[in-house]
Amino acid sequence: MSEPAPPVLEKQRVRQVNLMSFVEQAVQVAEIAETLQVAETLQAVEALQVAETAETVQVAEIADATEIAKAAETVVSAKLHTENLDLFYGNFQALHKVNLAIPPLSITAFIGPSGCGKTTLLKTFNRMNDLVEGCRIEGDVLLDGDEIYGNMDVNHLRKRVGMVFQKPNPFPMSVYDNIAFGPRTHGIRRKGDLDEIVERSLRDAALFDELKDRLRHNALGLSGGQQQRLCIARALAAGPEVLLMDEPTSALDPASTAHIEELAIKLAERYTIVIVTHNMQQAARISDRTAFFLLGEIVECDTTAKIFSKPGDSRTEDYIRGRFG
């Protein structure tokens, strides 16, 4: 496998630093929480839980600050967060007691063998599972602390949590109309505004120069890689905070894959990205954190560096070793 390009490493390092400060913040929150035990605001109640978590952790004599921080982050500042999530398709349980926190402005990769629930979990974040008949959910899925399966408007949720699918799925209309579909759906009608959004989204997806003269052409005429980047641009145009990517490169050639990976790293500066991938090198190349799935459970979730260097669970190790040979 080729070495990651130096700029990529540089960006990763920058984001590693960001993450460290995120961890530090969480520690601070935990400390503040202890001092705020008597406060009665809603935040205080949350903080109390954090404090309790911290206390139990302390009781368990684990002094590691990052451990406390991990407990804290799950409650306070994770972008997406699941708690004891069970998901059923009819009688089949696809996810078992999933607890996961996804920090903002980072790339989280889901890895694991086929049919282990990666895509299923991904699709709970924008409720695409609603389309599957007999799908039932227990437990909590939170976006910025709000219950996704509560009384949140599904369409608004999907505007905030964009998705890129396994196979490029541009609509049978022009490039322009494809990208303008999201903004139009959410009420933007003025031509000037739309033009601006289309251009910005195409630039963000590094597609503008290739397609600026073909905006009125049918999107089905583009190459596979272009189609997938168009789908990313289309998702960006809706103005999301989170971008879910379901094996976005599995149908693409290596060159297009490299394109998309670069794009994902760049986008992580402004968006929270969750990516499902079968390709472990891809996870290692681009993600900050990696979650390993097996049979509907998360075996472990940690920084990518740790998962790939010294995983905490032997099953993770087996899987990674097996793949790396």
Partner: peptide, 21 residues
């Protein structure tokens, strides 16, 4: 194709808009 339905729903379009557009 179902992919177009998913794409449209994934962008936050409702069922009616997906059907119409």
């Amino acid at each position: 194709p179902d992919a177009w339905r998913e794409g449209s729903f994934g962008l936050g379009a409702g069922r009616l808009r997906t059907v119409g557009r």
